[in-house]
Design a protein around this nucleic acid. Structure first.
Length: 263
DNA sequence: ATGGTTGCTCGGCAA
């Protein structure tokens, strides 16, 4: 079963790329971030025509996440618990029936947190604390769990072409990196790092020729519970998508799990 | 380089 995550930076601007990518990559489950659309305007008909079920959690103008799945959703949960006042659409969980029992897949768009020194940074850290608590609860179920999305976290210096350029950025603060490590300490595995130590990027800024200079960062991650990680057979960044016409500034990251949809 | 580019929405924010 192929599970992918992609920050598409606007579903309206990216619909042609999204449909082309779905046909080429053929993910069984696709987690999207920054759909920048309300649910009513999400182009579900075109996507359903390719054989996907569609669940969204959007808002006007910014943020917004979605899960597309060739498997039927058994359950859908929107919003990360822990702060009833949080109005930003950044979290959706789908539950699916597989050969290994219930599979839980989350599409998350973790707050950017810039600039550090404003209320945006503590919002990011608070969101990461809520995610840690939620994940601890799900891990107690001892089920396959995939947390996929744009984490806005540069976990290690190797995950940036120029780490020194990011030292004042929320994505690379010690508190940010520690909060990410706490998710790993809970028992979650960074799928890419389970298969390779090489330098890989998932985001290149639109500005200053970042793509042409390969000045990128790796901030889109799939974290796996032990029960998901034991089925991991491959993980890869689909870098070529960044060279398409009218690209997102992020590219898809995909894993294969040796699991099948329940009969 | 206190710049640069894109999306959403048509001024200014978010990234």
């Amino acid at each position: 079963m192929k599970i992918a995550t992609w920050n598409i930076n606007g579903v309206k601007a990216r619909i042609d790329n999204l449909l082309a990518w779905l046909e080429e990559s053929q993910p069984d489950i696709a987690c999207l971030q920054e759909i920048k659309s309300v649910d009513e305007n999400f182009p579900r008909l075109e996507i359903e025509a390719l054989g996907y079920h569609v669940e969204t959690h959007g808002q006007k103008g910014f943020n917004g996440v979605a899960i597309l799945s060739k498997l039927r959703f058994d359950e859908v949960n929107r919003r990360l618990p822990g702060d009833e006042t949080d109005e930003q659409s950044r979290f959706i969980e789908g539950v699916f029936s597989t050969s290994a029992g219930a599979l839980r897949v989350v599409s998350l768009y973790l707050p950017n947190g810039n600039p550090v020194g404003t209320e945006k940074f503590p919002y990011k850290l608070g969101w990461m604390e809520r995610l840690e608590r939620w994940t601890a609860g799900r891990l107690a179920l001892e089920e396959p769990l995939v947390l996929a999305g744009d984490y806005n976290v540069i976990a290690k210096p190797i995950d940036a072409k120029n780490p020194s350029a990011w030292v004042d950025d929320a994505l690379f603060q010690p508190e940010t990196r520690e909060a990410f490590r706490r998710l790993e300490w809970l028992g979650m595995t960074d799928a890419i790092r389970a298969v390779t130590d090489e330098q890989l990027f998932t985001f290149w800024d639109y500005q200053a020729g970042a793509w042409q200079k390969d000045n990128g960062i790796r901030i889109d991650h799939l974290l796996l519970s032990p029960e998901a990680g034991r089925h991991l057979s491959s993980a890869a960044v689909e870098k070529h998508v960044r060279a398409w016409e009218k690209p997102s500034d992020h590219v898809p990251v995909a894993i294969d799990l040796a699991l099948e949809a329940a009969a």
